[in-house]
Design a protein around this nucleic acid. Structure first.
Lengths: 182, 182
DNA sequence: AGGAGCATGTAACTAGTTACATGATTGT
DNA sequence: ACAATCATGTAACTAGTTACATGCTCCT
């Protein structure tokens, strides 16, 4: 299960509570692996009984107590072995592509509008990635050992969004130059 | 549920048995929406009790009987309404990105090898899409009404694979020019 | 005799989503 | 008073995967 391993990666970098992990998944890791807090708590519970992580209850003033999880030796071993195993290429799952394929079955003007909205969403995401890149990696030729991976992942996100944006433009071009109904 | 709608799209184009659908999902639609035959049979069963599709048993000579499903009026209505509803952008789920992010925690040479393998897989997929494009859409400026959608989807697949390939090259470049261990 | 293709499914399980539930503190 | 943030979870459900099960025909 991939969420389990994503959590191990996150905890190997720094120990955290379930809540912290949920926020991390909303930010950096979450760009390519979403997880809800419910799912995270569930998986953390199982991982603890599997001895991949262990927790310490930390009392806080003015805030609820929290359970801070850290990775165990077993967890590190599992992570190392997972990292060494090739990942089969994940098939895309695009509901949007299914809709686009069914273009002739629906309302064309409506779909064009949907594509415009998507285009704007991809443009916003691209801008946000570009801002991150400029902020955290102003000089990509001088990266620390532990920055290379995250940097390359960000580059992948950037490329994906730029590609999606161009695809939207191609769709809009094609649908505006070919015969229009509506 | 998206599989349900992908099946409706497929059946709106042509009636089919569960087995036929499974093969279609292996081919065209399956490039962006995978489904196993077990899952398809299960969903078809529910869709039939929901009156979105109906089946006719067809006897065949020299082959097992088959249940041919066709879309109902209710099914078409459901499809139309789904097509008109905007799809929220699907978050990527990339196990590979999680691994890449954890570069500093694992064996670098091993990861480089994994990237090389992925690069070859993306190159093969790209070549296969290019062959499909040349075969089915030799003249993209002269497409029928019902070819535009599938053509644009294929273009999306092409762009995705080309982008993934370039990303692999960027990763390999970065990891070979920066300091190497191993 | 063995394998590939046609054809349909069930059973057990894992993963993930949605809705609900609680309760303190800090800011408007 | 009301909402937001911190913090943890349960319950019910939907979606998808893996393994198993059957049986016929055609090709080698």
């Amino acid at each position: 299960m991939a969420l389990e391993h994503a959590i191990l990666v996150s905890l190997a970098e720094r120990s955290a509570s379930g809540y912290d992990l949920a926020r991390r998944f909303d930010a950096s890791i979450g760009h390519f692996w979403k997880a809800s807090h419910q799912q995270i708590y569930k998986v953390l519970g199982r991982m603890e009984s599997d001895k991949l992580v262990e927790s310490n209850l930390v009392a806080q003033s003015g805030r609820p107590d929290k359970k801070v999880y850290e990775i165990t030796a077993d967890g590190r071993a599992e992570l190392t072995s997972w990292l060494a195993t090739p990942t089969p290429p994940e098939g895309l799952r695009s509901e949007f592509a299914v809709k686009l394929r069914a273009l002739h079955l629906g309302d064309r003007a409506n779909l064009v509008e949907q594509v415009r909205v998507r285009r704007a969403q991809h443009a916003a995401q691209l801008a946000s990635y570009e801002a991150s890149a400029a902020k955290y990696y102003p000089d990509p030729s001088a990266l620390c050992e532990d920055e290379v991976g995250p940097f390359l992942v960000l580059r992948g996100g950037l490329r994906t969004e730029a590609g999606a944006l161009e695809w939207c433009d191609e769709i809009l071009m094609t649908l505006s130059t070919s015969s229009r109904d509506g």
